[in-house]
Structures are given as structure tokens and as C-alpha cells.
Design a protein around this nucleic acid. Structure first.
Lengths: 259, 259
DNA sequence: TCGTCCTACTTGTTATAACGTGTCGAGTGT
DNA sequence: ACACTCGACACGTTATAACAAGTAGGACGA
């Protein structure tokens, strides 16, 4: 392979394939040439073509499957977790629920609830003291039979203990806001802190995505006035989800000094 | 190296080093043993130790520097891009300036504005026709002198052409909301669609992060009623930023039926 | 003293080779 | 017709080898 500008061969090959993906020569789901083909096409060793494809894989443009080949990855995420004026905590509940249930035995979500005590991190987020009793609930949400979202929520038992809504699931009402309404606590706002990072091994396994794929991690906390009521760690594959936040912009009332 | 469970050696070594990072044996900024050291320590070939370190690099736990070594990467993001309160408290200030001030940073940015025509993607987002004239502005935001955020915004010239606020920057007022207020268009809400993915080469270079590090990509669109007024593509390193969304939860009577 | 050069050490790139493991279809036997 | 086997082919893992390129510190000369 001509050593153009001294730029490493594997990067040039990656550039070449990438441009083919962008200009549509290679389309979503298409199989890339095999490693042997690429070796012949570019006249390089296998390690070079593997490095090239690895670059594209780390960019999320390509997925590899042992025994089958490397494939151009579908680009746009398909599902949207909408958060905003019409706040919904169960994105699967509406459009996807039917198909998920119809197509298999897998329920839309499964959960596990247990009493435990607050770690320091959770205590800070809930405004309580480390070691205070909390109700911890872990969820796995499914869409089309595939794991799509993980969530672990924490509620101070000081708030719910002994009430009809002590159990987050299986009671007369579900969802944090209605449950808290039922015991006279009215949620006023929710804060979501969003970060992106690579999937940890446990998350990759549970969400059935390749290790290292970027995921979105959300720290969500519900408040009644300034009092934290519930907090949760939510993990979604950024392949499959867009987070859509719709925020009101109130009309201008005053005119503070500009920047 | 003992071939435990048939799990590949490089993954076992990655596990080993990862646990040392998590339990603090290796702390932030510490140098990992060199490849030669790891080869000797684990009794494997260089390709195995390189694969192992590559796993950690793709997880964002480690950065490599040619000629120096591999280093444990500082973990937690330090800055927060707050969205929510800002729109109600200080509608005049641009979100970035307000966020930077909130974290005690001096905001700096550079920009480039030019007239162009809308691509199909942008036209769809702005509710106009592909080829319609738009004003395109690319920003690079800095914090502490380091590039921190990239943004490319588009405004239909049908809205601003010939007005005092045709230029997004350099005019009497800045920020989308106040500028549009000045010409009688009142922004009612903003939608931010958040996705996570790996940094593309251009983004990695411009943001000065390693290639493949996860970034957060935001599609932001301002609306006046249901009419799109401005849309922007924003990219931030997920290492350095948390997106914090504060959303009101309307009182019970206004709320849609719970799940 | 100070700057330059050299060298040792580090990761980066590439080649060759071999075997392991997963996939899939063609061929075979019932 | 159908199930099973097997082999071709794909990517996965690992070894050995060599040279390139970036870094840092010590040796050396001005």
C-alpha cells in the first residue's frame, strides 16, 4: 500500500471504508469485505486490516460478528425516551408495549425490590444519612424482547414505610408521581443528570451490547419542593435510545444585565 | 498465564488492571507498568498486553501516550451544563455563558458565521425546504483555555434576514431567545435530543480528547409555539461534562393519565 | 552554565504464522 | 423429505520479529 504522507496504512484504509459508508457505497447492514479480501485489495497484512476495521468499530460505524463478518451498523437510534412536559417514566408502555408482549413471553419489564440501607452516595442524593433504610428496586426494561434499559431506584423508607405504596410495584398505583400523590406528597420537579461513558462489563452483558459501546447514564431525582423523594440510576444503550428533553422557556418578564 | 475458564488472556489481564484502578491500587494519573513489564509479569506476548490495555482505553479508564506510557485517566466530569432553570432565571444569557459562570469559569468562545443553504436534515429540523437560505454559525467554546464544546447552529434567513439580529454574534443582543424577542418572536420551548457515541476524528482532535472516547451529541431546537426558529448540533466530551436537566412536573390535574 | 546530542525506554506500526471458535450451507445418510 | 455431518469461511486469540516515532534524562561540548 502506498504510504501516503506517512499516515499509517490502517488509518488510510479506515478512511477509505468510512467514506464508502458515508457516501452510501456501503449501506446499513451491508457486509464489509472479509479480512482476507481486504488484505488482497490493499496488499497489506491481516493486522493492518484488523486495525482499520477496529477503528471503525470504535467509532460505532461497524459491528463485527465472529463467523459471519463485519457489517455497517444502522446509524440512527430507533427509540426515544421522551422527558419533558409530558413526563413519562415508562417509554415502553406506549408504542412498543404491544409488540413486545405479542412477540414473546418476555414481559415489558422485570423488577426486584428489597429493603436495604443507603450508601453515602445515595444518602447524599436523597438528603438523608448513610445507613438510613431505603427501598431499592432494580428494573430491567425490554423492548421487542431485547433488554433496553436498566434502572435502580431508591426511596427513603422514612417516607413510604407503612403506607399502601411502600412497594413500588404491585400496589394499587404505579409510577413515582402517582404513588407519592396517593400519600399526599406532590412531586414538583425532576432533575436528570446525563453522562455518557463506555458500557461496563455488567451493563454490556445485561443490555446485550458489545463491550465498550457508549451508553447514557442518567441520575434521576424527583423532588417535592426542595425535598428529594426518589432517586434512580438509569442506563440505556445510546445505540438504541435518544433522550428527548422538552423544556419550557417562560416569557420574558424583566431584563437583567446581559453577559 | 493460567487459562482460567478459557477466557482470553487479554481480558483477564484487563480485568486485573481494571480492578486495581477501581480499588485504588492504581490511582488517577499513575503510570501503568510498561508493555515490557506486563509481558514479563503475566508471561504473555506483547500483542496480549496491548489488547488488554486497549480494552481499558476503550472503556475510558486509561490513556496512552507514545513514548511516555499508559496512564490511569481521571474519572469524574468536572463541569455541568445546566439546562432548565437557566431559561427561567436568566433568559438573556446564553446557556453556555450561564453554565460557565455557574461553575466559576470565564466563558470564551470563537465563532464563524456564514450564509448557506439548508441540507435536507437541517431543513427537516427547521420545517423549511432543502435549499432554503439559512445562517450557519459554528462555535468553539473554551473553558480554562481548553476546548470544551462544539456547536453548529442554523437559523432560517426567512426569519432574520434584514433585521438587526441577522448576525447571531456581534449585534446589540446575543443569545437566541433575546435576539428573537427583539424581532417580536417569542421562544416558548426548546427540545434537546441527547445521544451518546464515540468521538469522530474531527471532534476528538478539536476537543483534544483521545479518539473513541464517548461524547454527548445534542440536537437542540428552539420553538416559538410549534414553529422551529433555530436548531443546533452540540458536541461535548462526556468526560468533562454532565448535562443537568431540571424539569417541572405539572400538578396532578394537568398530568396525563399515569401508566 | 547552557544548549545539543545521544541513548535508553516507551508506545506505534507492520509482517508472518498458527490455531481456536462461530456460522452456514452443501452433501450425506436415513 | 429431513436431520445430521462436515468443511469452507468468517472473525478471535496469541506468538515472534522488526523497525518507526515520541519522550526524557544524562553525557558532552561550547
Amino acid at each position: 500500500m502506498a504510504d501516503f504522507r506517512g499516515r499509517p496504512a490502517y488509518l488510510q484504509i479506515a478512511d477509505d471504508i468510512r467514506s464508502q459508508i458515508i457516501d452510501g457505497t456501503l449501506q446499513a447492514e451491508d457486509r464489509l469485505p472479509s479480512e482476507a479480501d481486504l488484505m488482497a485489495d490493499y496488499g497489506v497484512s491481516r493486522i493492518v486490516v484488523r486495525n482499520a476495521v477496529e477503528v471503525l468499530r470504535s467509532e460505532g460505524l461497524v459491528v463485527k460478528q465472529q463467523g459471519r463478518g463485519s457489517f455497517v451498523r444502522a446509524q440512527r437510534p430507533q427509540r426515544t425516551r421522551v422527558v419533558g412536559d409530558l413526563y413519562s417514566e415508562r417509554p415502553e408502555a406506549s408504542p412498543f408495549a404491544a409488540s413486545a408482549r405479542a412477540s414473546g413471553q418476555v414481559p415489558e419489564w422485570e423488577y426486584q425490590t428489597r429493603r436495604t440501607t443507603a450508601s453515602k452516595t445515595i444518602a447524599d442524593r436523597l438528603g438523608i444519612t448513610a445507613g438510613d433504610p431505603v427501598m431499592r428496586t432494580s428494573y430491567r426494561f425490554f423492548a421487542d424482547g431485547e433488554p433496553a434499559m436498566l434502572s435502580t431506584s431508591f426511596e427513603p423508607l422514612a417516607i413510604t414505610e407503612g403506607t399502601p405504596v411502600e412497594q413500588p410495584e404491585g400496589g394499587p398505583v404505579t409510577g413515582v408521581v402517582p404513588r407519592m400523590d396517593a400519600i399526599g406528597i406532590h412531586i414538583t420537579h425532576v432533575v436528570e443528570d446525563v453522562t455518557g461513558r463506555s458500557a461496563r462489563p455488567y451493563e454490556a452483558e445485561t443490555l446485550k451490547v458489545p463491550v465498550g459501546v457508549p451508553i447514557l447514564a442518567i441520575e434521576r431525582t424527583y423532588y417535592a419542593k426542595s425535598r428529594p423523594i426518589e432517586t434512580a440510576d438509569i442506563v440505556v444503550s445510546s445505540d438504541r435510545y435518544v433522550l428527548s428533553y422538552r423544556l419550557p422557556v417562560p416569557p420574558r418578564t424583566d431584563r437583567p444585565t446581559p453577559i
